[in-house]
């Protein structure tokens, strides 16, 4: 049945379940309409997947804690608790206190901020640069692509964390350096993914016809190819966000961040307190470690559900 030429004259309203089920079979249906419907369908699948809901809940909680920490904790991260030092978790101090008597719960809440400033900023810069580079390399090919591909491979052959150590060591430990380093080190991986997608898109008819229409390369890349790889860019964005959280936490643990050691920062708190675990004082390091784990797993749940929704 073709809903557009329905003999009864009853046009199925676009967006109703029937319309979504029928239109993909319609020959000659406007491409734009089909695409927006596919998108809507994907969003529906996404919002209903439990992984996505849990992931957004967890990440949302930490984002809120990073923006308004006072909402969750009436105690400051550097205040000394009345309970004293090394007190195990109790009603007075939910997550206990650390070796100098600061409230671990307050430090976990306030510790969300540095990681949630660095990771999204670094990821944002990396995704813009990587997508642009990948699209241009994949579309134009040629020797520039060859050269950049080799450089990408070379950078990928050194573990990100080692490269970050080397760069932060020579450039100094400031927040812009750390954001910039993580961003630059993530560009190669993003470039590689987007480039191979751009190569397969470039072989398709719509790109050929755009070329024959005489469109400029920049137009084809930004208006023709980019909209067709957005899904991939979104997946790549969330994947890298997870890695950025991972990388920042590791750098903080190793002491490569700008923060002063008394600032609330999950990685720093784990590194300052983990040696006490063997003396049974586990709470000052395990709670920030759990915070890192929940944030990374939350981001990964979102990534995984977006990936599944796009493939559904």
């Amino acid at each position: 049945m073709n809903p557009i030429y329905d003999p009864e004259g009853e046009l199925t309203p676009i967006g109703s379940p029937e319309a979504e089920a029928d239109i993909p079979e319609v020959e000659g249906a406007p491409a734009a309409a089909t695409r927006s419907q596919v998108r809507r369908e994907q969003r529906r699948v996404l919002f209903r997947s439990p992984g996505f809901v849990i992931g957004v809940g967890v990440v949302g909680f930490w984002v809120l804690a990073a923006i308004v920490p006072s909402l969750f904790s009436s105690i400051g991260p550097k205040e000394f608790s009345d309970a004293g030092a090394r007190v195990s978790p109790s009603a007075d101090a939910w997550f206990g206190t650390d070796s100098v008597g600061r409230d671990v719960y307050a430090r976990v809440i306030y510790g969300a901020r540095p990681i949630l400033i660095v990771a999204p900023l670094a990821t944002g810069i990396a995704i813009i640069a990587g997508t642009l580079l990948g699209l241009l390399m994949g579309f134009y090919r040629g020797w520039v692509d060859e050269v950049f591909s080799r450089i990408v491979e070379a950078i990928l052959s050194i573990p990100v964390i080692l490269m970050a150590i080397l760069v932060v060591f020579t450039f100094g430990r400031s927040q812009p350096v750390i954001i910039g380093t993580i961003a630059v080190l993530f560009v190669p991986a993003i470039t590689r993914t987007i480039r191979s997608a751009a190569i397969s898109e470039s072989d398709l008819d719509y790109v050929t016809s755009a070329k024959m229409r005489g469109e400029s390369g920049l137009f084809i890349v930004s208006r023709e190819i980019l909209p067709n790889v957005t899904g991939l860019v979104v997946v790549e964005l969330t994947v890298r966000l997870g890695y950025a959280v991972f990388t920042y936490a590791t750098l903080a643990f190793l002491g490569f961040v700008a923060a002063d050691l008394t600032d609330a920062d999950w990685g720093i708190d784990v590194s300052l307190n983990y040696t006490q675990i063997i003396r049974d004082v586990w709470w000052p390091s395990i709670f920030p470690a759990l915070a890192i784990a929940t944030l990374v797993i939350g981001v990964n749940l979102i990534t995984d559900s977006i990936d599944k929704a796009l493939k559904s």
Binding site: A249, T250, V270, I277, I278, D280, A289, V296
Partner: peptide
């Protein structure tokens, strides 16, 4: 597998210290 592979290695290490080594 997905959940574990997401967490940084040192976080896994610290958990193991607390839950196995102690």
């Amino acid at each position: 597998g997905l959940a574990f592979s997401a967490i940084p290695d040192f976080v896994a290490g610290v958990f193991l210290l607390a839950f196995l080594a102690v």
